Simulated assay, not measured.
Amino acid sequence: MKVLLIQENGRHEQNRIYRECFCLQRAFEHHEYKADVWGLGHDGYLPYIQPDYESYDLIINLENYDQTGWVPNLATVQTKKFLWSIDAHVKGIESYLKTANEGNYDLILQATPEFCNAQSVWFPNCYDDEVIKPLNLEKVYDVGFCGNIVNRAQLISIVANSFNFKLDEFVIGNDMVKAINLYKVHWNANISIDINYRNFETIGCGTCLLTSYNEHIDSLGFKDGENCLIYSNLEQMVDKTKDILNNEEKRKSIEQQGLKLAKQHTYKQRIKKILKLYKGE
């Protein structure tokens, strides 16, 4: 099987190996399938030279933020085509549906189940266990957050004023993995109806995850008090953090159970789903 992955190259050098296209490429290669990456910014990319699309068995378009119109219209390409909708919870579903319809895509891989329809299947976020893993570092911060603030400022302020807190804003790449490994508890707030990458990356680092409730999170195996901590309001957010910081044995158990769950949500596991979808199963 030969796969073409379409996505712009990462704009930040230190975060490039974490780009979805490269994570998928490594996962396909783990399963001994050939996967090529093509798109704006990649070595050898020329806008007037297109790949030989028909030489591939499957094309996956991962580009969610085409700002210049470089992504080609694949309407006449006969190869089976999947579109991965990662950020519909931010952008809305309309642009993805437009791309899928105009490009005659066979299927939309939808990261947000609320947007699933007859054209799509739920394809949850995941993490790459080749680059995100426990580093066996001393956890020196009680609570931390690694990511972008966006609409989280008020919640971050509450956490910061309540605990020994470390904010790692826009810390990316290997530094992101190291940062998460240094927290006893990694606080997270999902944006809108998303179950974001940080949920999977945190448990993949072997760090105790404290995350906001989402109605679909249980179906992914996240169990409050067993392999993570889940809060639905401010009181729970603070109280559950206090309790777990006072119970090291339970926290370490959650870390281990979270790491066990993480193995179900790697890119390598998601490839198995893609292969079934490709075969029409």
Rank of each mutant, 00 (worst) to 15 (best):
S55A: 03
C146Q: 00
Q119F: 06
K34M: 08
Q67A: 11
R251W: 09
Y18V: 09
E215F: 15
A75K: 13
L277H: 04
Q67M: 12
G103K: 10
Y141H: 06
Y213F: 15
I193R: 08
Q7T: 02
E169F: 03
D57H: 09
V71D: 03
N233P: 04
E169C: 00
D57R: 03
A118E: 15
A75Y: 14
E281H: 12
N174F: 14
L220N: 04
L182K: 14
I60H: 05
H89F: 11
P113Q: 08
N15G: 06
N196P: 05
I195H: 00
P134I: 01
H186N: 13
L46W: 11
D243L: 15
E63F: 08
P113C: 08
V185A: 04
S162A: 11
I156C: 05
Q256D: 08
I156L: 15
N199V: 00
P51K: 03
L182H: 10
N246E: 01
G221K: 05
S157Y: 12
E201F: 07
K260W: 09
G103A: 10
D168E: 12
N136I: 06
E226L: 13
N148Q: 13
L220G: 04
V238G: 01
P72A: 07
L109F: 08
E138V: 10
Y183V: 02
Y53T: 01
D218T: 06
A75F: 14
E94F: 09
N104K: 13
L167M: 12
Q67Y: 11
R26S: 04
G204V: 02
S157C: 10
E249D: 13
E248D: 11
E32F: 15
E13D: 15
D224K: 09
Y267I: 06
V71H: 02
Q119V: 02
V177C: 03
C146I: 04
Q7F: 06
I271V: 10
H216I: 10
Q154R: 14
K133R: 13
A262H: 02
S162R: 03
K260Y: 09
D36L: 03
V131C: 09
G206Y: 00
Q269W: 05
A100K: 06
L24S: 07
W70G: 03
E32P: 10
C208H: 04
D142P: 08
Q256I: 14
N190D: 10
I132W: 01
A179F: 09
C116L: 08
A153E: 15
E235D: 15
L97S: 08
I274F: 02
K260R: 12
L5E: 04
E94R: 14
L155R: 02
A75C: 12
Y56C: 00
E281I: 13
Q154G: 12
K133S: 09
E169S: 00
L209C: 00
E248M: 07
K279D: 14
N196A: 06
L74C: 07
E226F: 15
Q50D: 14
C146S: 10
Y96Q: 05
L109S: 01
G92F: 08
N64W: 09
L74N: 03
R26E: 11
Y278I: 05
A100P: 11
Q119E: 14
H30I: 12
Q154P: 13
D66T: 02
N246S: 11
A111R: 03
